[in-house]
Design a protein around this nucleic acid. Structure first.
Lengths: 241, 241
DNA sequence: TAGTGGTCTAGACCACTAC
DNA sequence: TAGTGGTCTAGACCACTAT
């Protein structure tokens, strides 16, 4: 067992104080906690220590520091529950729960498949795939980013339907007359990469749920391989058996 | 967009160097990376910066610092894939994949149910529950901690069977003649609390997968409510639909 | 211009490990 | 005793926001 000096770990005490103050409503949602300097004076602590404390409660999701302004208390919303089954999709999930949402096609490309795509989609190394990167929002705040791969042969000229992009599944159903069925999903808890943390507007220490999914033609062959990364503090996933 | 000084974020450069060196095999698994002081000299950087870099690669799972000794490179094992379905249990999962595992009953108690337990197990506030805390190991390393609640009426005198605890399900089947069936699971990515990080022997910034599950009597009423917390860097969960 | 958070330097003392 | 990582102090300059 590692000993700890009695007066040490002061940053944990400060973090605890801040969390309790937020819980008690002393620091209110969307308002600011005291500045670093103020906290230094209050606790007779070094700025470094105060910053450690703030880093901790930031990672725990309580506040978001903004350069030049201050450190804002987050609205602690219950995470959105996302139901995964063979049929549910993001859009239906949100609509069914009456949650206002939107999405944005960040990027698309047509290219040769990587190994994961070849294996999961059961295609050869020379069959082209469409690759879409989609960012989803709830209350104008980004909550997930998804990379989806579909073989070109399944959706020729897919890019013709990208104007006013609303939902990939709407395009598949309206223009290609099929609706993929979720076959399997693999869940992991990971830390975001630099790109993810920028897109999702979270610090690099907020955990994210990564869901790697494969969807098939109804009763048939694999057609859509996707990797989604959801903010851990705003999402949870329900699976019923 | 926030600007960054060109010479700034030096700690990210150092972190990148360290990761690349580990990847390239320059720093080998189970050996130590150079000491903080050595890195300070090498990069002409302040110790604080070097420590930031080390904190980063620690959180990303590459190394584990040990006081007084050094900073050891972790064996990057592919995460263990854990298959969740209505029937699979930890023990069967591991056995099927030929993974050597063990577990330990950390604590047990009999007490009144909390709100979650009342709701999920569909019991009144005065029906006692057994509450078990189980730590699971793979290769002698802790990988998950689970809290399981079962109404006392389902398993009277449960504690009589705790000697040489091997598997809760073995006890249920051998002595109470039923085998719970998984009904639903809720996945979240969270950061560990202090207690979790101690039990799982991970720093507080390594994400964990939290799985809240409910299991029923075959075709019947709820009988087991559990919350598991798995090391994110060592586990992934597969669900097939 | 003043105040905020972001980054970095320099140096101190402590606890733990190895010798 | 020397070397390691853990914690903390004191102070600097920067970028951003508000006034």
């Amino acid at each position: 067992m590692i000993k700890v000096r009695e007066d040490a770990l002061q940053h944990l005490e400060i973090a605890e104080y801040l969390i309790n103050s937020i819980r008690d409503g002393e620091f209110k949602v969307d308002e600011k906690i005291p500045s670093e300097n103020t906290l230094c004076r209050k606790f007779q602590a070094n700025r470094h220590i105060v910053r450690q404390a703030i880093a901790r409660i930031t990672n725990l999701g309580w506040v978001t520091p903004v350069q030049g302004k201050g450190c804002y208390v987050n609205r602690i919303s219950q995470p959105i529950q996302y139901e995964l089954s063979s049929k549910t999709r993001f859009t239906e999930n949100m609509d069914r729960n009456g949650i206002k949402h939107s999405c944005k096609l960040l990027h698309w490309e047509k290219g040769l498949p990587n190994e994961d795509e070849q294996e999961n989609l059961e295609i050869s190394h020379e069959e082209m795939v469409y690759r879409l990167e989609i960012l989803r929002f709830i209350d104008e705040k980004p909550i997930s980013v998804t990379t989806t791969s579909i073989p070109e042969k399944e959706v020729p000229d897919l890019e013709k339907h990208f104007k006013a992009f609303q939902s990939l599944y709407a395009i598949l159903i309206d223009h290609y007359y099929f609706r993929p069925v979720r076959n399997k999903s693999i869940f992991q808890a990971v830390l975001p990469g630099l790109k993810d943390s920028e897109l999702l507007e979270i610090p690099e220490s907020v955990p994210i749920i990564q869901i790697e999914s494969l969807a098939n033609h109804p009763g048939g062959s694999p057609v859509e391989y996707s990797v989604s990364r959801l903010r851990g503090d705003m999402n949870k996933c329900l699976v019923e058996f």
